[in-house]
Structures are given as structure tokens and as C-alpha cells.
């Protein structure tokens, strides 16, 4: 209520202080400036997305499309019935629905990666913000340098480290710790999660760092002054105030990882593949664009709903806080 009143008051004061001149000519200027960008996004995003959604209701037989609407593709993805026409590109030993399994695996991998990345990143952001005094800029620079390497090579280098004859296995064998190369660390979901948590680290650290930097240090002193120990103070003041950065970091990591293609392809082995690999197969080798489109639309829906959930939880959390 008080917020609404304040807003109304500042609204009334605006002409004097903020002096927003908003004649019809201003609206026209704004729209003119906006039109190239908006037109571009309309042409190259809205129409292609629309076409993809439309295509997900089609079916394909070699090079001809059947454009009468069908739910066949979605049925193939979400029901237990196995579609007849897919063959064992991914191995015919699958007994459950492969598409659904890949979608759910992508979701769980990306959620897991998000959680792992945030947990690993938060202490670093906290350390740089609260304990580094002089060289904050240098630390941030050091954190970002590795990520100016090609993404493909960064991922591939983890294969060099974790591979069957990779750095880890070779070193452990040379030290006599193990007799045979470990297989659990390569070509598996673990390898995918580790690699992705590395690949997205700075994108998690930076937003958290920024939100920690914004915290007025006197608030922490006030909490201490009012009797909070370091741990209570962290959970009652620091963490809540850093929450916007944490949520931003979560979205920044979650959204691209669910659609990641390179990491599962290079490090996932047979059991670690994700939905992007299947989408690519459908578009290139499998030659079933409608099914590929349906897979893309399904993963888009998952991304959208989880993202909305993140944002909604954050809003609810912020609103619940006494202001």
C-alpha cells in the first residue's frame, strides 16, 4: 500500500523533476527507432518460432511434408507407445520412450548443473566481494580469462583430462593408485555435469558478485549490532539481499545448459546424451523435421515454465520480505 502511494506521489511530482516531455511526436520518434529492431526480431524470431510450432504438428515422409495437423509427434514424445519409425540411432536396447527420457534427463542435468554451479560460485563471489580489499578487479579478471578460450576447446579439454587415457587416469596409474583406467569419470553424466559447471562458472559468479557488492555494509554492521552472529547474519541479511543476483545466475546457467549440444556429444558417451543431440539427429541424419520441431518446442516449454517458476519464486520471496 505504502509503495503504491509513494509511486502515486512521485508520479505527480514527475513533470517538475523528471520533466518527461511526451508529446505525440515523442511516441512517433520512439516507435520509429524501435521499428528496425522489432521488425528484425519479428521476421527472424517470431515467424521462425511460429513455423517451428506449426511444423511440430506436421509429419514427414522423406522429402514431402504432410501438412494436415497431427499430434503424432507429441504422442511419440510423451506417451509410452514406441514410435515405429525411429530406428536404433541411439541404440535399440532402449525399452522406455527415448525422447521422453532424453527430455527429462536434459532437465535433471541442467537443474543439477545449475545447483552445482551456484554452490561452487557463491563462496568465490562472496570471497572477492567481502574479503578482497584492493584487487577486486584483478580477481574478476582472473576469473574471466579462461573463458576467452573457444567454448569447443574448453569442453574438449575436459575430455583430455577425464578421458580413458586422459590426464587423471594417466597420473593415477603412474602413481600406482589404480591399475586400470577409471571408467566412471569419463563418458558419463558426471563428466557432463562437471564440464558444464566449469563452462558456466563466470556467468554465475559475476551476477552474484554484483549483487553482493551492492549490499550496504552498514546493514551488516547493524545486524551485528542487533545481536546476530556471523552465521545468522549471513542467512538473515546477506543472502536475502544477494538473492536477485542468485536468481539471475540460476537463469543464466539453466537456460543454455538444457539445450547444450557440445558437452554431451563429446563427454556424455551413450548414456549421457541430451535432447539437443536428438534434435540435431532428427534435423540432419534422421530427416524428421516435424519430430525435431516437436522436440524443440517441448524443450522450449520446459525452459519457459522452469524460468517462470524461478522468477515467480523470487518475486514471491521479495514481496514476502517486510519492506
Amino acid at each position: 500500500m505504502t509503495v503504491a502511494l509513494d509511486e502515486a506521489a512521485s508520479e505527480a511530482a514527475r513533470p517538475q523533476t523528471k520533466r518527461k516531455a511526451r508529446g505525440p511526436s515523442d511516441a512517433r520518434r520512439g516507435l520509429t527507432l524501435m521499428s528496425p529492431v522489432f521488425g528484425y526480431a519479428l521476421l527472424l524470431l517470431a515467424i521462425p518460432l511460429g513455423a517451428t510450432i506449426a511444423m511440430s504438428f506436421w509429419s514427414q515422409d522423406f522429402l514431402t511434408f504432410d501438412r494436415s495437423g497431427t499430434l503424432e509427434n507429441y504422442a511419440a514424445i510423451w506417451t509410452d507407445d514406441m514410435p515405429d519409425h525411429w530406428t536404433g540411432i541411439f541404440g535399440s536396447y532402449w525399452t522406455e520412450n527415448l525422447y521422453r527420457a532424453l527430455l527429462l534427463r536434459s532437465l535433471s542435468v541442467s537443474l543439477f548443473v545449475t545447483a552445482a554451479t551456484l554452490l561452487l560460485a557463491f563462496p568465490i563471489a562472496y570471497y572477492v566481494s567481502f574479503h578482497v580489499r584492493k584487487n577486486k578487479g584483478l580477481w574478476i579478471f582472473l576469473i574471466t580469462i579462461p573463458f576467452w578460450t573457444s567454448y569447443l576447446l574448453r569442453v574438449f579439454l575436459w575430455k583430455v583430462i577425464l578421458g580413458y587415457e586422459g590426464v587423471v587416469n594417466a597420473s593415477l596409474m603412474a602413481l600406482g593408485v589404480i591399475d586400470e583406467p577409471l571408467t566412471s569419470i569419463n563418458y558419463s553424466i558426471n563428466a557432463v555435469v562437471l564440464t558444464l559447471a566449469h563452462a558456466w562458472a563466470p556467468f554465475a559468479i559475476l551476477p552474484i558478485f554484483v549483487s553482493l557488492e551492492k549490499i550496504d555494509r552498514s546493514l551488516l554492521e547493524a545486524a551485528e549490532d542487533l545481536g546476530d552472529g556471523p552465521i545468522r547474519r549471513f542467512f538473515r541479511v546477506t543472502l536475502p539481499l544477494a538473492m536477485p543476483g542468485v536468481v539471475a545466475a540460476a537463469l543464466i546457467v539453466f537456460i543454455p545448459t538444457i539445450g547444450d549440444y557440445v558437452t554431451p556429444k563429446l563427454l556424455g558417451g551413450k548414456d549421457g546424451l541430451m535432447i539437443s543431440n536428438m534434435i540435431e539427429v532428427q534435423f540432419k541424419k534422421g530427416n524428421d523435421q516435424p519430430l525435431g520441431s516437436a522436440l524443440a518446442v517441448s524443450s522450449m516449454m520446459i525452459v519457459a515454465s522452469i524460468s517462470v517458476l524461478f522468477v515467480w519464486m523470487n518475486r514471491k520471496y521479495l514481496r514476502a520480505r517486510p519492506s
Binding site: A12, A13, P15, Q16, T17, R19, A21, G23
Partner: peptide
């Protein structure tokens, strides 16, 4: 006082507001 319209009047004379 602030909000009385004096700056708006000045900006109308200058041509920043119509």
C-alpha cells in the same frame, strides 16, 4: 516551491516543452 510549475514554464519558453 518545488512542483509549482516554474521549471515547466521556463522549459516552455526555451522550447523543450510544448
Amino acid at each position: 516551491p518545488s512542483g509549482c510549475g516554474k521549471t515547466t514554464l521556463l522549459r516552455c519558453i526555451a522550447g523543450f516543452e510544448d
